[in-house]
Amino acid sequence: MFGIQGRVVAAITLRATIGRKRAVLFALAPLVLILVTVALKLSHPERASWPVDILGLFGLTVVLPLTALIIGTSVLGAEIDDGSIVHLLATPVSRGVVIGAKYTVACVLTMVFAAVPILVAGLIATGGATKLALGVFAGALAGSVMYNAIFVMISVLTTRAIAWGLLYALIWEGVLGNLVAGARLLSVGQYSLGIANSIAHDPSLNAALSLSTAVVAGLLVTAVALVIAVRRLASFSLKGEPA
């Protein structure tokens, strides 16, 4: 897709990301999701809407952003932290290709480690390929694409990417998104819910945005975040020795 350079960058990124200890972290959350779903399924809760709670509240708003955060900030951020990015940047590869390849790897990994487990949980919880199961899967796929653009951007902007990413996911989306209506318009979690709800049509998902708003705003946020990431990477500077 990006030619030989993009494929080489993607291959190294994939190997480095899977090989780090953090990989255990992003394999853990989906495992918990599926285990909790199985446990709930076996215990037959009284609340009829429990599949929506576990898929929407836990899957889409906790497992998905958390997995995307760990993956999105490490595909590029880890190399910036340890300095090995210099080897990559000291070649004539365009910075757009670097971001593109790393972002693609982050999206695919997030889909494998968050969206697919959410689908599996949905199939278990609702007992088959229901609208809810497919809806949250679609929301999770879209969320993977949007969250990673933001988290890759954050990892180029700051060396404390995990902290800033958590701040965004918890404070902005978690607290402000629930209290302030305006914040929902700038919340990837809400875009994912809006897309999920367009298939699921389930009021207990609490989707605040329509499909078209979610898609347009989501595309815009993704594009802007990636452009900022490329521009910042093009201005990547090495710190000199302490004066």
């Binding site: 480095a16 340890d82 004539p92 090495l238």
Partner: peptide, 20 residues
Amino acid sequence: PGIYRTVGLVPERDSVYAFL
């Protein structure tokens, strides 16, 4: 980035892709 066709850089930090 085009200058890296005529320039080779050996950075100070030891971090390379050590798994390769």
